[in-house]
């Protein structure tokens, strides 16, 4: 699985991308976030408040119960802030 990190999530975790082998019991977005958080350090601090974390599975926004698998590209990032100033 490819993991991508953007904005302050990237800064706190300390890299923009990594390849990981998924434990067999990690099958959803929510389980993946829990597992990443359990790695501690930058992962724990970046993911301590999940209300400001958004997840995309294969470039589509995904809910916590969305399935994840080994061939997926999963991106973690804060709520988006594109477009023009409000």
């Amino acid at each position: 699985m490819t993991l991508l990190y953007f904005a302050w999530v990237r800064e706190q975790i300390g890299c923009d991308a990594e390849e990981i082998a998924l434990p067999s019991d990690v099958r959803t977005v929510a389980a993946l976030l829990d597992w990443l958080r359990s790695r501690g350090g930058g992962y724990a601090s970046a993911l301590k408040d999940l209300s400001v974390i958004r997840v995309a599975v294969n470039q589509e926004f995904a809910a916590p119960d969305h399935a994840v698998g080994d061939g997926d590209e999963i991106a973690l990032f804060p709520p988006v802030t594109g477009g023009a100033p409000s």
């Binding site: 953007f6 904005a7 302050w8 400001v52 995309a56 926004f61 991106a75 990032f77 804060p78 709520p79 988006v80 802030t81 594109g82 477009g83 023009a84 409000s86």
Partner: peptide
């Protein structure tokens, strides 16, 4: 433009005299 602001995966990092900050949604 309304959907761009909430769905397009862009993030703004502002530079100020007090240092940089990420814009919150």
């Amino acid at each position: 433009i309304d959907w761009l602001k909430t769905k397009a995966p862009f993030w703004k990092r502002e530079e100020t005299a007090e240092g940089p900050r990420w814009v919150a949604a």
